[in-house]
């Protein structure tokens, strides 16, 4: 079972320091989770750090978990996206994930007003990611030779122009950086609409869904998997995680007291109980194939992850890529012979 954590809260002083986020992800790692996901969107008035520099800054924290950051595909250039994540994937030792942000809107467009808003933001997003992936492939895995006797740093036959000419982008390439360690970073797609479901079916390694019941989760998973198959992808190529707000306590009563104080925010599925009750619930969902895991959205990360850490779990291990950890295939390079 895969477990990730997302932190939807705002980033404001005085907590907007590296020490704060370092403690946050250390807690995630100690709780036995697989990745910390920073969903940070430009545009809304909620103050937020940009996710990409944030996870880069966390690269040196001694944990083995994956690190994800959202990227707005309606206002990102493929070349920028490809190089930032080629760097971040290498800096993190292959633990990076791109969280696809498809929430284009009027609010965001106002910050980029000179650019004609894409008539079809979803088509732009598809082309943006496709172009980015071509750039990641533009260096084959063995492009760097560092052959001193031969005087060759790179093998010119292993570096390719992509010559992409599409509706929204014209990009020649090659990228000015080697292929990410994972081939491509893990691609995570939050599913909130028919468009994002279709996007996920086509590209996602990990889809995040937000059903409120187990039956709804089962049917949402089935719908995604059917579309995945329609794109000629293997069903094992995608992991589907359910958003879950855990409100934990050492006892059921304590958890309930916390839940009463917090109240219901938003529509996400909530779980109120002890850590072992949560684990039982997760196993039940897993047993009926309702999902491959959960994306936890804690109200109070230190409290909830501290409690989760009391459950027996495999200790956080370094030296593994996020793809390995999630047992996801490494993308085949389209340019490799």
């Amino acid at each position: 079972m895969i477990l990730t954590a997302s932190f939807p809260s705002a980033d404001t002083p005085p907590a907007i320091t590296l020490a704060h986020y370092r403690a946050l992800i250390t807690g995630v790692a100690h709780a036995g989770l697989d990745a910390a996901l920073f969903v940070r969107s430009p545009g809304p008035a909620t103050p937020m750090l940009d996710g990409a520099p944030l996870i880069a800054a966390l690269a040196s924290v001694p944990v083995g978990i994956g690190l994800g950051a959202s990227v707005p595909l309606d206002h990102t250039e493929p070349f920028h996206l490809a190089r930032a994540f080629a760097a971040i994937d290498r800096l993190t030792g292959g633990r990076s994930a791109v969280i696809v942000d498809l929430t284009a809107g009027v609010e965001r467009a106002a910050q980029f007003g000179h650019v004609a808003p894409p008539d079809d933001p979803d088509a732009r997003a598809v082309e943006c990611l496709e172009t980015t992936a071509k750039l990641w492939d533009s260096w084959e895995d063995d492009a760097i030779l560092v052959d001193r006797p031969g005087g060759l740093f790179t093998n010119p036959d292993r570096i390719h122009r992509i010559n992409h000419e599409g509706m929204y982008f014209t990009v020649r390439g090659p990228l000015n950086a080697p292929r990410p360690l994972q081939g491509w970073p893990v691609i995570i797609v939050p599913v909130a609409s028919a468009e994002s479901r279709s996007f996920a079916a086509q590209f996602a390694d990990v889809a995040l869904i937000a059903p409120t019941t187990r039956d709804a989760a089962q049917s949402a998973c089935a719908a995604i998997r059917e579309q995945v198959a329609g794109h000629g992808r293997r069903l094992q190529a995608i992991r589907i995680l359910v958003d879950l707000v855990p409100i934990l306590g050492a006892t059921t009563a304590e958890a309930q007291r916390r839940a009463d104080a917090i109240g219901q925010h938003g529509s996400a599925l909530q779980f109120v109980g002890t850590p072992s009750q949560l684990r039982t619930m997760m196993r039940e969902w897993d047993a009926v194939g309702a999902c491959d895991g959960f994306n936890l959205l804690p109200h109070d990360p230190p409290v909830d992850f501290g409690l989760l850490a009391t459950l027996p779990h495999t200790p956080d291990a370094a030296g593994m890529t996020l793809r390995d950890r999630l047992r996801l295939p490494r993308p085949v390079n389209r340019y490799a012979a």
Binding site: A56, A86, A87, I88
Partner: peptide
């Protein structure tokens, strides 16, 4: 063969 600057600098923060 260049590190994207903002990513490299951010990693150096840590």
């Amino acid at each position: 063969n260049i590190w994207e600057p903002l990513s490299l600098l951010s990693a150096l923060v840590g």
